[in-house]
């Protein structure tokens, strides 16, 4: 069977996402993110959160069209843009 990965960093499948949304009554991306760690891996949500936005109607049964990031509760981007090794910050 083909597995559809929705979040590559945390290896979360589309099926798992649909399951927790349904069973746990999740209605927003922020809660979904904290539930399955989607968007919390090295990509910083660059891939998975966009996929979720594209699939919004399918996942949440509601349309995303014409709504702002705030209305959709799109998680804010947090620095750094890309993971950086900790040694970058060490005082020498």
């Amino acid at each position: 069977m083909m597995v559809k990965l929705l979040c590559i960093c945390e290896e979360i499948t589309l099926e798992e996402v649909q399951k927790v949304i349904k069973e746990e009554g999740i209605k927003d991306i922020e809660t979904l993110k904290r539930r399955l760690r989607i968007g919390m891996g090295p990509c910083g949500g660059r891939y998975c959160i966009n996929t979720i936005l594209r699939m919004y109607p399918q996942l949440f049964g509601d349309t995303a069209r014409g709504k702002s990031d705030t209305e959709l509760n799109v998680p804010p981007s947090r620095p750094p843009l890309k993971p950086i090794p900790l040694y970058t910050f060490k005082e020498r």
């Binding site: 919390m40 891996g41 090295p42 910083g44 947090r78 620095p79 750094p80 993971p83 950086i84 090794p85 900790l86 040694y87 970058t88 910050f89 060490k90 005082e91």
Partner: peptide, 23 residues
């Protein structure tokens, strides 16, 4: 970031090779 990393890596230098993900 400088303070946290500098102090902790003095005792746990292993951590220097790992990546900062978010703050």
């Amino acid at each position: 970031l400088r303070k946290a990393v500098t102090i902790m890596s003095r005792y746990f230098p292993q951590i220097l090779s790992t990546n900062l993900l978010r703050v």
